[in-house]
Amino acid sequence: MAEQITNKDIAREENLVFKRTGVLTDKVMHYCPGCGHGTVHRLIAEVIEEMNIQSDCIGVTPVGCSVLMYNYLDVDMQEAAHGRAPALATAIKRLQPDKFVFTYQGDGDLAAIGTAETIHAANRGENFTIFFINNGIYGMTGGQMAPTTLPEMKSSTSPYGRDVKMMGNPLKMTELVAQLPGTYYVTRQAVHTPRDVRKAKKAIRKAFENQKLEKGLSLVEIVSNCNSGWKMTPVQANEWMVENMFPFYPLGDLKVDGEMAK
């Protein structure tokens, strides 16, 4: 019997296979335990590190739970007024076309107050990247109904469930934006399993790479949990997301290299 290698022996620099990327700052993120925002921040940071574009990147943060994202990513960032991130990113990218410019927006930010900015930036074919975190709710302000809230879904302002007769239908912004000729890459991903995390990271990378081609806007939607707003544990929230969000917001590419998928 060979001598057993101990865990202490293994935990050495030369055996390292995964560590926190240096593009994330050391600050502890303020997000609720298990919130997908943190995972998406990490993936964006990892891609920035792997593409070696840390000093060539300018992000625009939204209003919503991720309003403080600039504390967590060690890249240049600017804060936009609620929903206006695509307008600000338009200005930044046009002034500095060599920079990699992205917005990071929740569904309340992108699909409610910022609908016009989103659609027009996409339709103009602006050459930046939008990361759209869809948790079906206004997380930051206490779980109010958003345009993305599912039919029958409970929220603090639809306590008996969303009644589409009175409150209208959920808005599929990603499907809408994919129709526009100004978009080059539109995809919907998730980050709740290791497999989905790997796929989402590839999509994030592609969306950044596209900026070099100057062929229009890339949008990566991430369907994510707001476990606090949904009033579930993180594990339950991810299960609920799979059962309820994914049938309405199916994962996968909607548009790749300027062509509608399927």
């Binding site: 290698i5 995964f18 993120m29 995972t39 990490r42």
Partner: peptide, 18 residues
Amino acid sequence: CINCALVCPDAVITVYRV
């Protein structure tokens, strides 16, 4: 396998392998 680190929202897991 790093699966745990991939899903950790707070990036607090470091993984080693031999």
